[in-house]
Design a protein around this nucleic acid. Structure first.
Lengths: 225, 225
DNA sequence: AAACAGATTAACAATTAGATAACAATAAGG
DNA sequence: CCTTATTGTTATCTAATTGTTAATCTGTTT
């Protein structure tokens, strides 16, 4: 569960703080905590979290206000803000998104949901920050245009195919297990069957030729060096 | 049956404690015991067990709570937690896995099942922690790519062959008995005949040459230093 | 040297994993 | 809303891996 990402959790209730903290740590995140907005800001400044999980209702400085301050600070351009909101206070949902939040999660919090959503958000972020293009062998795999260049030939892959190739090519030679691939390309919200991967591999091979992706029976696939 | 692994067993019933303890010791594990969660934590802190076997229903501090505390402590990142749960309380199964348990075993406990499951779990763990590549003699045995490099020559082994070579090479010079090898490479769920190992050894020798794996008659095989 | 124990080896059988094709469901675009 | 492309599933086929058996070989012991 090698997972990158620092998360700052802000809530005034110690129980909830602990509960969330525990669940996120389990997932492999580095977790920091603060009891209210006022406390949170300096901590955030210091640790530069990838994501801030913010309770809307807090004494001293509420979530909305905190979010506004965060979002107006260019230090936090790369930081996602996710609100925690009681289901009934749907008004805060609106206002929260107005204040610049990237997502919100309703209480009561279910660990699975929490983890899944945050994983999804952070995966998106990581992907955006990832190298925009990879050069391997005679290929240029370009995220910007979602095209594969070989010499002056342009090859168009469908999105999933592209992501899959991109993953394999990100570490040529390394064997990725199907589990690996599912987690990285599909994410853990989705449930797809192993054969699906095989089929996408085949599609890629059809378009590019067989020489790029190798099969290691009983283990997985790799980009051939 | 030189088996690595420290196990802490936590249950309030002395009978069960003794029963489990006896069966695990027989298997070669170092076994420690505690009567409840409160007792267990300091012991766990001290001995750093590889696995904690935790009864769900206990006075003083129940399994779920204990598990949560364990899992929120980074000291125990490398520790597996397995629940013991009466079949009927299937609710605890859910909650237990939520609390971060890695597996659970239903009572009534059958020694075979217990031992088999724990072996499997610990084997997985050991594999995860294993070095990704081994250099011996003129070989580089690489888990990332599942390839053997000799100079700039790449040699592809089938999976079982690879695992077998990897095992032997993980401790060059040490003689592994067939029993050893079966346990580590095949796992004890599977039942294969001894000659199978011989055949795999032969296949490896065919691909790599005879100079790497030595036979110690009446004992087993080793990687020649 | 005969008898034995254990290892090697070849030939074969069983199993399993992956490739592939055809199809179904879903999403995207006009 | 219809059409098309993408994405996902399933069933079948193929090939490689894995496992078994039995004959042979090697070395040891008596």
């Amino acid at each position: 569960m090698e997972n990158i990402g620092k998360i700052l959790v802000v809530d005034d209730e110690a129980d909830i703080l602990e509960f969330i903290s525990y669940n996120l740590k389990k997932e492999g995140y580095e977790v920091f905590t603060a009891a209210n907005g006022k406390e949170a800001l300096p901590i955030a400044k210091k640790i530069k979290p990838d994501l801030i999980l913010l309770d809307v209702m807090m004494p001293v400085m509420d979530g909305i206000e905190t979010c506004k301050r965060i979002k107006s600070d260019s230090d936090f351009d790369q930081t996602y803000v996710v609100f925690l909101t009681a289901r009934s206070e749907d008004y805060s949902e609106i206002e929260g998104l107005d204040a610049g939040a990237d997502d919100y999660i309703a209480k009561p919090i279910k660990p699975k949901v929490l983890v899944t959503r945050l994983n999804a958000i952070l995966r998106r972020k990581i992907k955006e920050l990832a190298a925009p293009s990879i050069k391997v062998k005679d290929l240029l795999i370009d995220r910007e245009s979602f095209l594969i260049y070989r010499g002056d030939q342009k090859i168009q892959l469908a999105r999933k195919e592209f992501e899959l190739l991109f993953l394999l090519a990100s570490k040529p030679g390394k064997v990725f297990t199907r589990e690996n691939i599912l987690e990285k390309v599909w994410g853990d919200e989705v449930l797809v069957v192993d054969r699906t991967i095989d089929v996408h591999i085949r599609k890629i091979r059809e378009k590019l030729g067989d020489e790029y992706i190798g099969t290691v029976k009983g283990v997985g696939y790799k980009f051939e060096i």
